[in-house]
Nucleic acid binder design. Sequence first.
DNA 1: ATTGGCACTCATAAGCAATGAGTGCTAACT
DNA 2: AGTTAGCACTCATTGCTTATGAGTGCCAAT
Lengths: 340, 340
Amino acid sequence: MIPERPLEVLKAIVQDYIQSNEPVGSKSLVERHSFGVSAATIRNDMAILEEEELIAAPHTSSGRVPTDKGYRLFVDRLNEVKPISNAERAAIEGFMSKSSDLDETLSQTARLLSQLTNEIALVQYPSLGKASVRHIELIAIDDKRLLLMLITDSGRIQQHVMEVASGYEASAVEKLRNFLNEKVAGKPLSSVNKTLRASKDEISAPLQALAGTVIPEVALLVDANSQEKILLAGTSNLAKRQGEFPGSISPVLEAIEEQVVLLKLISEMQADQHGVSLRIGRENTVDALSNTSVLVSGYENQGSEVAKVGVIGPTRMDYSSNIGAVRAVARYLTQSLGGL
Amino acid sequence: MIPERPLEVLKAIVQDYIQSNEPVGSKSLVERHSFGVSAATIRNDMAILEEEELIAAPHTSSGRVPTDKGYRLFVDRLNEVKPISNAERAAIEGFMSKSSDLDETLSQTARLLSQLTNEIALVQYPSLGKASVRHIELIAIDDKRLLLMLITDSGRIQQHVMEVASGYEASAVEKLRNFLNEKVAGKPLSSVNKTLRASKDEISAPLQALAGTVIPEVALLVDANSQEKILLAGTSNLAKRQGEFPGSISPVLEAIEEQVVLLKLISEMQADQHGVSLRIGRENTVDALSNTSVLVSGYENQGSEVAKVGVIGPTRMDYSSNIGAVRAVARYLTQSLGGL
DNA sequence: ATTGGCACTCATAAGCAATGAGTGCTAACT
DNA sequence: AGTTAGCACTCATTGCTTATGAGTGCCAAT
């Protein structure tokens, strides 16, 4: 077990390093914090920390830098989450309450969070997997095309224009619409395909032709769009702090533009005691993100978590503030989703 | 008037500089191109070009670099647009023909163009200003909320969920829907508000209450959403070539994330003889983009230009290839929009 | 367990000469 | 008049050496 003071030293190292982006040495440490002991003593403590691989020296005889493991211990045991300031709270509230449109709400949330944290913000669209159908709409656009819409209880709206053999009856469209809604409205998305397949026979003969075209499209919409989607904002924040960043930022940008990778990553993350989930450096299985930390929190709709919201930044990000900000934003997002 | 050979020299300088990103000197110039004259002669020609401010020297006695004006003359008079390769054509065709969904088509286009050019690609959503209404849809979600949808002939779909005083009749919704479509379907968006205001009195009494809530929302949808929208892709391309970029890239990223600025810029741009429009360096009124060139082409729907597609990159981009790529992508986009 | 002292390391900065690509200019050449 | 060779000059870049100094590790003393 690591004794008390060395842990305090680690905490100080993390804080100083986050602030200065310079390896921190024993001397500057005793200057800036009042440990009541001398630099030599701190050096002994640092030796312990290095032994435990909580800190490392970029080169022999230079200051120390926290390792991923060091950051991990810091956030798990040493860090007090900084509550967001009143100004920030005001900013969030002002931002959030504006729109009742899902797309807009989410993209505003992303922008807000990136400004609050100075990191890259990500907002995942409410997952369709857990959602249920609120309504299916079928609209005749012209005599050859139908617009099919799928509205979920999270407010997400998917639409698809499809070609149909011309010459269908206007009333047929309406009947089919009613039929579809009767069958699947209120049901979870995951059951839609099965339900529709099962009730194929119940369709009256004159509708069969139309239904034959439409139902596969419904299936397609459900499937294709249970593909998740992520919104990003503040990519320039990364570029801005490029100097502070070890190595090149472009692989990072590439990785996060690759939605599939990012989705896989955040879907693996489960909330911890703070209500957030954090991957530090190499804890991210994605190689390009080995110098970054990913911090997410879930937000809810109708009482269950539907998706994640969070930030991506250098491992030496300000965990105290960022955890607070992400948590707050997730909470407000849940709230404003309830009103949608 | 500038004589022939100096222009050839300028062309060579631009080509070499685009390729190497190093100031180019008289000696390497005669080595790589067969002018049939000596380096000293080229130096004289370069003196002329410098006099005309077509090239400049970063510091005394170093090679020369084209100025914005130099690039301008190059693209206007010296550059032959490189037709896209068969491989590229195949890539475009494969990419484009996949989806019949507007959102997807556009975002794929953006990704495609960024890969083709290795620049940041931008795709503007079809402008609502020139579009007309294909259909208005009004859907009861539950007893307190209505979903209002506006579908334009370009395939763009806008929707908005609104709260209404509870207790409306299902039939009222349908009647109002019919009424709205009768009035504005097929009409240009710009006339919708006026038309609806004018025909307010024609609404039968029982519908008045509902109409009073809905019509302002329609207006809102038309107005708020004639706000244009731009899709970006390949921001990492900029980061990747960061070394080649004078100064910092982060102001550039910030500027293009600021949609308003970008929209204003590209809306000012009018196609030239090549079918594309190009702003080089300081020709962009936006300060942050003084080291970048913006290259766009219009794409059409139903015979008239509805929006722009293009790339943003360093002024020393490969104009020959990029102009070809942007033009081709715009053409294919027009084509695949026709099928939507 | 803590501390002062001390030798040692090593990144960084500063100074300096050599290199070489590139220029501008002049005088000779066609 | 246009072209060229020659030459002196500029200046970024490179490599080299030499401080400087922050920081370490370790030991003997407290």
